[in-house]
Design a protein around this nucleic acid. Structure first.
Lengths: 339, 339
DNA sequence: CTGAAAGCGCTAACAA
DNA sequence: TTGTTAGCGCTTTCAG
């Protein structure tokens, strides 16, 4: 590391005190314009780079946000990250990322690491199928804000930025019912997770409204493979008795669609299909798959805004609010018999 | 911020000196086992959290990696990030991300921010169509390692972890030639960018080997829309005289394929098509599209390994090496006339 | 408007 | 094996 210029070097070169340099650099009001100018010039000349670490140590603020997601490379989450980064960089915040891979142990470790790095706040979408939120509570107890996005721990009261899973699922179900479907099969992820509960709830509410029977539910890991295998099995068993498949992501929807096509069913004439999350491929499958666009980047932007605004002006009253972002229905051929 | 326990608090509680506590906590060899035990116990009891900021300030190391990508949410880059994070977290490094959106100004600013955060090294895939690498040179001059992945600035000599664009493109072209194609249309991105140059080079080399004419080249922004519009236009003009389209990403390949199908051509019988990057949808289009899998996560993992290993043991000799990662040909129906 | 001085929490000579 | 001491580079009272 080549010797970096410090405020002391600038001070010495200018024959003034380093505290004045510090103030000038921070645009403190009680510094004369002339001094400021001199300082800025000299700083540029000496190629001064502020040592943020030192400032952070002093001010106990790092201007850094931590974000922990289950999987960085999943379309939805990478959009969220992009949104977070967008707002953060506007406000001069860094973003440190960590992924839990949906494992509690890694989530704990990630949170721990972020805390050690003295982030000013943590945005987290918790690992699936876990209810033990003690590690989160500890962070909050230490006065570092933790806000949830997309997923959340039920027993932690803090700001949440969620998607309108229940409403949009209801809207989607309604649309599919109007296409003539009566018996629904739902391909769900782990039902201990709030988002899947909410989506199922939305679907069943709508079915009830139309006085249709509750949806059949299969918990799977929502991959292409497991979903097509499941459908294949159901077809072989002859226990096939649904005319609509609502999958809780696009991979599973596509797996179901391909398995059904292979078994000789036509989509959407015999079975209606919908997915979730608007992965790019769902637009190009045959038929294209109806899905829900979740606007991950907007969610990220909003979550970042909430937590950064809170960090800059902690208002204890607003801490426990829950915001819900609107998703968008993307109706495509897989669920549209009539145009 | 609730008062955090420091090493001094532990020292006082134990009646020893804080430097001993520091050493014990860092598992320094010259501390008695007994003392270490006592320290660890007390640390746990007092819920001690090390202040990494202070340590960093002192040691001038942050155990943090900066990574700047053009677009966080692009499949390839988010895989790279996932790979980087994977290795980094094994080695106890944080990862700060920034995106340039392929804009030089944002790239400059990102690099600047990372430098101010005192990252120990920067991994970067530069913005497209830019040759002015002064901001990178400055970082290197300040002795912070900057390694390239996927893309690079030609005039900066540093470690690069690249994909085998030229070789794999040649292999792909060879395969397509063997299917009977003679006149190639290449849908390329900005040809100022090394990866596109390399891919084109690989294709043309192979064409030369077979004594076929050079490929026709169209520079586009490689979106579905621009590519299908371009093909449509070519067809309408009647200037259509190719029997193979090699697109430099899957979006463009799909756009070309759909436009050709709409114009009445059959794929692969009349025109052979290939894409690049193995987006998920290319597997499910009709026909499925031949493409190249780039293993973004492996690249990320490797780049992270290179730079972290270098940070931990700077070896000036190894700094200018270029590694090339093997891609994988994914041959599908769009380019396979004969099975 | 500027200077002096203390200290954020930690590490690392050097000394004992 | 442990203690003493200095200081990383910055911010921030308190004085002037």
């Amino acid at each position: 590391m080549a010797k970096q210029t410090t405020i002391h070097d600038i001070a010495k070169a200018l024959g003034i005190n380093s505290s004045t340099v510090s103030r000038a650099l921070n645009d403190h009001p009680r510094v004369s314009i002339k001094t400021k100018q001199k300082v800025f010039e000299m700083a540029k000349e000496m190629n001064y780079q502020p040592n943020v670490l030192a400032a952070n140590l002093r001010t106990k603020r790092s201007n850094t946000l931590g974000i922990v997601v289950p999987h960085i490379s999943r379309a939805f989450f990478s959009n969220v990250i992009a949104g977070v980064e967008e707002y953060a960089q506007q406000k001069g915040f860094n973003v440190i990322i960590a992924q839990s891979k949906d494992m509690l142990e890694r989530e704990r470790k990630s949170v721990q690491t972020l805390m050690n790095s003295r982030v000013d706040g943590i945005l987290i979408s918790p690992a699936l199928g876990n209810e033990d939120a003690q590690h989160i509570q500890e962070v909050i107890d230490r006065k570092t804000p933790v806000f949830f996005f997309d997923r959340h721990y039920k027993n932690i009261e803090t700001t949440r930025v969620l998607m309108d899973d229940q409403q949009i699922s209801a809207a989607l179900a309604s649309n599919i019912i109007q296409q003539g479907a009566k018996r629904f099969l739902v391909l769900s992820g782990d039902l201990k997770t709030s988002i899947y509960q909410n989506r199922l709830q939305g679907i069943n509410n709508m079915l009830a409204d139309y006085e249709l029977p509750e949806a059949m539910v299969q918990e799977t890991n929502l991959t292409y493979e497991s979903s097509s295998a499941l459908i294949e099995q159901i077809v072989q068993e002859g226990s096939f008795e649904f005319d609509a498949v609502m999958a809780m992501n696009d991979m599973a929807a596509l797996g179901a669609q391909e398995a059904l096509k292979k078994a000789g069913f036509t989509i959407p004439d015999q079975v209606l299909i919908s997915g979730f999350s608007n992965e790019m491929f769902s637009r190009f499958s045959s038929p294209p798959i109806t899905t829900v666009d979740q606007n991950g980047d907007k969610l990220g932007y909003m979550a970042a805004k909430k937590i950064i605004d809170f960090i800059e002006d902690p208002d204890p009253i607003a801490v426990e609010e829950t915001s819900t972002l609107k998703s968008e229905l993307i109706l495509r051929k897989s669920s549209q018999r009539y145009q």
